[in-house]
Design a binder for these strands. Structure first.
Lengths: 202, 202, 202, 202
DNA sequence: GATGAATGAGTTTTCATTCAT
DNA sequence: CATGAATGAAAACTCATTCAT
């Protein structure tokens, strides 16, 4: 994938393998423990042993799913940063837009990625949390850079960065594709809110 | 409860009945479907039939828990509003502080109240979602009022209100009591961020 | 109860203590194992410990019920025999009429008395089966007597006696109080059928 | 199955699938509610989930059992009628013999089929009662035909038909294979009793 | 990869029964 | 007698997983 090619804005209908896509929906609706292997198999259009042909266990399906989700988001974020200029304001806007779009068009991914972290084995959780932390660091770096060179006025860059992330993730909890505002308009407005966070003063 | 008595700032160690307190911890760690009735009973210090003496079903425990959590939060918020002056800025600050404190000192409550909404029966969910909506309306009203009289400059009061709520709820996902900053300092800083959201400009 | 006083034809609405009456209905509808102590208590208008005040156990309720049912039937049959003349034909008619009426007006009693024999403790079953055998003996004696003196022509008095009993008990399995024929007419017709059984020839 | 092939007189040791055979014995001894799924599984030589692989629920086992029992009896009865001549006396004898043999060699089937009707779901009960009614109709038709053409003298064909059925079913409640009389002799004698029922006079 | 059969360990829930008040 | 709280044992049923074909 070439840097800056802009594919980080594209969200096609299906991007996950059938097994993971079905698992995603099942986990979103009923949670990891509430979804049975039989249901995952049915949603994937496979038999139960067929499902075990692809994954060694139910836990492995969750691990593969969260890994795919976070890897995709991370890839989009680095692409977004690579597709823009050097100035902190530009980089901030690109990153925030990327996060907003993902949490608008992948609400289930986002919900499962946070609500089912606890259902991962410690070893698996460690890996996934690492990906999530890497994401947060991308934003932290941009905000700190901007705060350092005076682009952003906030006296609390760390808290602001976390607040911006929270704002973006929170979109997933209320966004509906049939809402009154277009995605582009929503992105624009929330970019304004995000800029407000990094430009507050005591 | 007298208006403005300030109890909305107090967070004692235990406020829930033993059964619900145990259920809260279990649901937070393992999710509704991942926590067994046996475990809920053990955490409550009861035998399994003893637990059924108090609640008709596992679902009833979840319903009672979410009801207690949201009713408590709602009570604190109305108390907070009753304890301050009439100006939108004051009311905004009181409400945001109340939400921040709750999501700092009751992180598990907050997590379970959102992650296990899906595990409620439709009828039960309707009731709990009603409480949640009432909360959001409290904030919406204050922000709209302040936007109308020029206290806040945001051109998007509805989005800003939702953004502030998201910011406050999001605190629950990262706050740790042993962090470097005191709760009061954290409240102060995030109040700044929240004011930034309602005071942004296009 | 004076001999021959004719009370064996009378069937009032309630004759059993409240506990046993409720148990009778519950056992008829759901069987001994299908009816819970809580349901028996509710039907009796008692609390659960209140029910245990009257009976030591669920098994004891079944025992008391079957004892009451069979004792009542046995009393009615001996009354019927005491209220008529000496001739085998008269005695046969009285006994058959008595059995028919009981199985018409006490269908639930009859059903439970046979279907729940198996649910009795061996010791209790022995007692109740003794009562049932005593009943069959009353009929056996009358039929044998009539066969011996030529009143009945059947070559198989034992089989015939059992067949008559079966005919009478079977009434309980289809009789409905709102059927087209009056109880008296049904008694008359089945008396005719019973006489046919003891008057058959090879 | 060819008409009149006489297989309706044959009773081999086992005719039911293992699961239903075990369920039959358990239900006969302890009733539907008194027999546990664990016991049904043990009697079938299966584990509990193994049993659920074949039947969806305990209720489904009861339904399948009663269906198999009544279908078998109905098949035997129609075979018996097909294997004899046209005269009502012949047809009556064949049907009564068939009913007698079934209730002698399949006492448990007969007992469970009547005592556990109440344990069926309404929908399932409707189906099974339909089969039972079809059986009674076979006998009703033969008796009415014989009463119409003067073969039988009874003035109450409907009551007589029901009485004959009761007599045959009742055999199941006392027949023991180790009794003093051979099955053939018992059939002969009870055929005599049955003929007495349809040939009584007022 | 599908099918069908199987299972140990677990699930939620109910049972009969007891006891203090 | 009622109330309320409690419990060991067992109920019906489902789970994730395996294996032979």
């Amino acid at each position: 994938m070439a840097a800056g090619d802009g594919t980080w804005r594209e969200y096609d209908a299906v991007e996950l393998p059938r097994v993971l896509q079905g698992a995603l929906e099942a986990f979103a609706e009923q949670g990891y423990h509430g979804a049975s292997i039989r249901e995952l198999a049915a949603r994937a259009g496979l038999s139960v042993p067929g499902l075990y042909h692809h994954h060694a266990s139910k836990q492995d399906i969750l691990r593969a799913l969260l890994d795919a989700v976070l890897t995709d988001l991370l890839r989009r974020c680095t692409d977004a940063l690579a597709s823009t200029g050097d100035h902190p304001a530009e980089r901030f806007d690109a990153l925030v837009e990327c996060l907003l779009r993902f949490h608008m068009f992948r609400t289930e991914h986002a919900f499962v990625a946070t609500s089912e972290l606890r259902s991962l084995t410690p070893a698996n959780r460690e890996h996934v949390v690492g990906l999530r932390d890497a994401l947060q660091h991308l934003l932290d770096d941009v905000v700190e850079e901007g705060a350092a060179d005076g682009t952003f006025t906030t006296p609390y860059p760390k808290a602001a960065s976390r607040g911006v992330a929270t704002l973006c993730l929170g979109v997933a909890s209320w966004y509906r594709p049939d809402g009154p505002l277009s995605p582009d308009e929503l992105v624009r407005r929330h970019l304004t809110l995000a800029r407000g966070i990094v430009n507050g003063r005591d």
